[in-house]
Design a protein around this nucleic acid. Structure first.
Lengths: 219, 219
DNA sequence: ACGGAAGTTGAGTAGTTCCCTCCGTTTAGA
DNA sequence: TCTAAACGGAGGGAACTACTCAACTTCCGT
């Protein structure tokens, strides 16, 4: 891997780059992947060309914006795995994830879209295994209903974060409702079979916007 | 109301009209309001022009397709209101509504989109009051948690029916999960304040596709 | 059997959105 | 001062979609 240590940016270019990243954070946070690079440029007070000079595609900008934040989410999940109470660990993770998704729709789209696996394969795998463990541990503890499945977690994230439009706190109410349905309770009706991973993928691809590719050339 | 009793359609035109309606039902059921009238025409084996001759706009077709079915949903809600068990009445209604939404995405879009109020104002009002009663009755019965609100019902419909992409049965699992969270239970965490009607409207407009107008002329 | 009204067709129009490029102009900094 | 780097933003081009229209076809009353 040849270190692409190109010469440092000119001072104005560096400043603009920072402006672009900051503007992108804001614009993506509110509009998600639906945000346009024209939006970002305008918000940053620079021309579109400048954005494309720094980030050759929208994809590149997305990667630059979210790599770090997704790693932080994985770290959080791992930290929750260490919670002495499995139930608290799982629900803390779910609550924190939903809050983050509500506050930053871009991060939501990055984590839940199909592109996740392509863009951040390592983080994605790690996240998946940690979620499996969080769920297994809470079932073993006897607090999480046994018919719940790890594949339900991203679906719940998607469902709940769709509420985002109604204000940043709105998700909380419905997440709580769902979490109250997660506890073992003698009156619970059985859930039946969980979704397969493929079904989850289909579902996410239908609900979470993708970065629209310039031209669709399927391999 | 001047009976627009124009002369009866020619036989071939009548047959085509029926084909169009049937094709539209199928296409809208799977693609929702995202379906194109070109899709419908193709599916019906006629030209687009024929569709537009019968239904001057997409709106008109939507109205023709869903007026009756929405009235049926209102009737169902009223029937559930007569259930001796308020809990069963409410959950039966919610389950039936979600099943219908899963089976016919067009009906879902018609019932949950903002256009509902403009297109079917009477049915919309009636539905709203019946839901309020269903919820009040179940709270009075002591089975529904008291911090639940009637405005939560359409939100739950939206959340759950978003799962539709993963197959027609997928919604069931998550609806059950949510319903299990609706029962009074000493371990339930308080939900806090419900969404205002305006917040509900914002949320729905963000999640449910509208019939795209020919040109955007905001009043 | 025929004339004309009703019906059909589908390429085309017009509006919109959005990713990205290009080139004439500006500016940092040696 | 001079040059390479950076900038701006109009516009290319592709995709999508609601809808139109002029040339053609079919029904049906007489």
């Amino acid at each position: 891997m040849p270190a692409t240590a190109s010469r440092p940016l000119r001072r104005d270019a560096q400043r603009n780059r920072e402006r672009i990243v900051e503007a992108a954070r804001e614009v993506f946070a509110t509009r998600g992947f639906a945000a346009t690079l024209d939006d970002v440029a305008h918000h940053a007070g620079v021309g579109v060309g400048t954005v494309y000079r720094r980030f050759p595609t929208k994809e590149a900008l997305v990667e630059a914006l979210f790599t770090e934040r997704i790693a932080a989410m994985v770290a959080l999940a791992e930290e929750c795995l260490a919670d002495p109470s499995a139930w608290d660990g799982l629900t803390r993770f779910m609550t924190a994830a939903c809050r983050v998704h509500a506050e930053d729709r871009g991060l939501r789209d990055a984590m839940l879209s199909l592109g996740m696996k392509k863009r951040f394969p390592e983080a994605g795998d790690r996240m998946e295994t940690v979620i499996v463990e969080l769920v297994a541990r809470a079932k073993a503890e006897g607090t999480l209903r046994p018919d719940f499945d790890a594949t339900d977690v991203p679906i719940i994230f998607t469902m709940v974060s769709d509420i985002g439009g109604a204000g940043p706190q709105a998700y909380e109410r419905y997440l709580r409702l769902v979490i109250d349905g997660l506890r073992v309770c003698s009156r619970n009706a059985p859930l039946g079979d969980p979704l397969t991973r493929d079904e989850v993928i289909v579902m996410l691809s239908g609900c979470v916007p993708a970065v629209r590719p310039r031209s669709a050339t399927a391999p």
